[in-house]
Computed example of a mutant assay.
Amino acid sequence: MKPEAHYNTGPNELYLDVRLLQNLSGTAKWGKVLAVLGFILSGFILVFGLFMQQMLQSPGRAERVADVGLSGFTIVVYAFVALVYFFPSLYLYNFASGMQQGVQERSRQKVGKAIGKLRVLFKFLVIMLLLFLVLFAISLVMLGTGLSDFSLQ
Rank of each mutant, 00 (worst) to 15 (best):
residue 137 A to N: 07
residue 73 F to G: 10
residue 10 G to V: 07
residue 65 V to W: 03
residue 138 I to P: 00
residue 45 I to W: 03
residue 94 N to I: 03
residue 33 V to L: 09
residue 36 V to C: 00
residue 100 Q to L: 08
residue 78 Y to W: 15
residue 92 L to G: 03
residue 145 T to S: 12
residue 22 Q to H: 01
residue 89 S to W: 03
residue 1 M to W: 11
residue 74 T to C: 08
residue 133 L to H: 09
residue 65 V to N: 08
residue 88 P to F: 06
residue 19 R to T: 10
residue 48 F to H: 11
residue 81 V to N: 05
residue 78 Y to M: 13
residue 133 L to C: 12
residue 88 P to L: 04
residue 68 V to R: 01
residue 125 L to C: 08
residue 67 D to R: 13
residue 111 V to S: 02
residue 6 H to P: 07
residue 125 L to P: 00
residue 11 P to H: 09
residue 51 F to R: 06
residue 71 S to V: 09
residue 117 K to F: 08
residue 100 Q to T: 05
residue 63 E to A: 09
residue 50 L to M: 13
residue 145 T to Q: 09
residue 132 F to W: 07
residue 131 L to E: 10
residue 147 L to D: 06
residue 71 S to L: 08
residue 46 L to P: 02
residue 57 Q to M: 11
residue 61 R to S: 14
residue 22 Q to L: 12
residue 12 N to K: 15
residue 150 F to H: 14
residue 68 V to S: 08
residue 124 F to C: 02
residue 17 D to N: 15
residue 112 G to H: 12
residue 16 L to G: 03
residue 50 L to D: 04
residue 3 P to D: 09
residue 26 G to Q: 02
residue 143 L to Q: 11
residue 102 G to L: 02
residue 16 L to W: 01
residue 55 M to Q: 14
residue 2 K to C: 09
residue 105 E to P: 02
residue 127 I to P: 00
residue 86 F to S: 03
residue 134 V to S: 04
residue 131 L to G: 12
residue 43 G to A: 14
residue 80 F to Y: 15
residue 121 L to G: 00
residue 88 P to H: 05
residue 63 E to F: 09
residue 29 K to Y: 08
residue 122 F to P: 02
residue 63 E to C: 07
residue 127 I to H: 05
residue 77 V to K: 08
residue 136 F to L: 03
residue 81 V to I: 15
residue 13 E to G: 06
